[in-house]
Simulated scan of single mutants.
Amino acid sequence: MGEMPVRPLRADAERSVRAVLEAAERVLAEDPGASMEQIAAAAGVARTTIHRRFANRQSLIEALALSAARQLAQAVDDGRPDTAPPLVAMHRITANVLQVKGAWAFALGLPADPDSEAAVLQQDIDRRCVAVLQRAQDEKVIDAAADLEWVRRVYYALIGESLRGGADGSGTQGSDPDGADPDALAARIIDTLLRGAGPRAGGG
């Protein structure tokens, strides 16, 4: 009976950490120099709570970067890169990644220490991406002579530009339906990656 409170307390602690990380993303995206106190206030937790969970501002920022990297890795994994048909996997992964990158832009833009878990996760994401592209190449969806590392870099750049367009151009989200829909945006990214801007067969 004495163990009853343990689970709710742990769940509550996890919730407060999640609230702090979400607040840190919002606050630091607007003001990268924001203090722990400002983040605590935005998260709706006491200053003592944030200091109990994170030794200092740097440890909070490292936790934020790692949390975002894990979510990005999960977004890739959820697209079933090893088992789904390559085009299906590419579409799902792209839509998932757009959502995570859109929500955690500040955290994912932080430079990762080369030995950190976040950096290792990013390397694994890169490898999995090339593996999906390899499967697409094997199925003749991508040209046999294509340099897959270059294709991966172009793919990442397309995702980055898509997110920048939605963030900067306030009109993009409202006037362009693709800007608000990860699935439509993912379809456009994959289409551009695989077919470029050249004329379509039959003029359409």
Rank of each mutant, 00 (worst) to 15 (best):
M4E: 15
P5W: 05
R7D: 15
R10D: 08
A13S: 14
R15N: 14
R18A: 14
R18W: 01
E22W: 00
A24S: 13
V27D: 00
L28K: 12
L28A: 07
A29T: 15
E30P: 06
P32W: 04
G33P: 12
A34H: 01
S35A: 09
M36I: 13
E37N: 14
E37L: 14
I39D: 02
I39E: 03
I39V: 15
A40P: 02
A46Q: 09
R47H: 05
R47N: 07
T48V: 08
H51C: 10
R52D: 01
F54K: 02
A55S: 15
N56K: 14
N56L: 03
R57A: 03
Q58H: 10
Q58P: 04
S59Y: 02
L60C: 04
A65G: 12
Q71V: 03
Q74C: 07
V76D: 05
D77G: 06
D78A: 13
T83S: 12
P85I: 09
P86T: 08
A89S: 14
H91T: 15
R92A: 13
V97D: 12
Q99V: 13
K101E: 11
A105Q: 12
A105T: 10
A105G: 04
A107F: 02
A107S: 11
G109E: 06
P111E: 11
L121E: 02
Q122D: 10
D124M: 01
D126T: 09
R127Q: 13
A131C: 00
V132H: 03
L133R: 05
L133P: 03
L133C: 02
A136W: 00
A136H: 01
Q137N: 05
Q137H: 04
D138L: 11
K140H: 13
I142F: 02
D143L: 09
D143T: 10
A144C: 07
A144L: 07
A145S: 12
L148W: 03
L148D: 14
V151I: 15
R152E: 08
R153P: 03
V154R: 05
Y155R: 15
Y156R: 15
Y156P: 01
A157E: 09
G160P: 08
S162M: 12
S162F: 11
S162L: 04
L163C: 05
L163H: 06
G165R: 06
A167Q: 13
G169W: 12
S170C: 05
S170N: 14
T172I: 06
Q173W: 11
S175L: 13
D176S: 10
D176T: 05
D178L: 02
D178W: 00
D178V: 00
D178K: 01
G179E: 01
A180W: 06
P182T: 07
L185E: 13
L185T: 11
A186I: 05
A186D: 12
A187T: 08
I189L: 04
I189K: 03
T192R: 04
T192E: 12
R195Q: 08
R195Y: 10
R195A: 06
R200L: 05
